[in-house]
Design a protein around this nucleic acid. Structure first.
Length: 113
DNA sequence: TAAGTGACGGAGG
DNA sequence: GCCTCCGCCACTT
């Protein structure tokens, strides 16, 4: 059965906007589970398709897809990301350009530069 | 109950 | 940028 923490994780992942990505540690942190990055991976693996969780927008802190390059899962995630205009090169993504930064975004929006 | 495993992260070489 | 080690924690054997 689903651990209540998993639901928090799924909720958080659904907040990631199209065209952006987040790392496992970041999702764990935002979900109120600091240091539980591995739990995020497990939660995504258990996420039911009926929940429409954008699992493909979550990658590791190195900016890379966490599946072996060439594997079925890898190709699927890569395809989904590219369909959202996220550039994937050799299983790698430019974090500086595509990583979701909710805090910074809020600040920029609130402070009006 | 203990040991192994993994869609991870960070520090070091 | 790549690899190794170690810490981490839920789950499986």
């Amino acid at each position: 059965m689903a651990n209540p923490d998993y639901e928090k994780i799924w909720q958080t992942v659904r907040l990631i906007p199209v065209g952006k990505i987040a790392c496992y540690g970041q999702v764990a942190d935002l979900a109120g589970l600091p240091g539980r990055a591995r739990m995020v991976g497990r939660a995504l693996g258990d996420a039911p398709s009926t929940m429409e969780v954008p699992w493909h927008r979550v990658i590791n802190s190195q900016g890379k897809i966490s599946f072996p390059i060439g594997s079925e899962h890898f190709e699927k995630q890569k395809g989904l990301l590219q369909s959202e205009d996220v550039v994937v090169i050799n299983g790698r993504i430019k974090l500086g350009q595509f990583q979701w930064q909710p805090d910074l975004a809020e600040l920029l929006f609130t402070l009006k530069y």
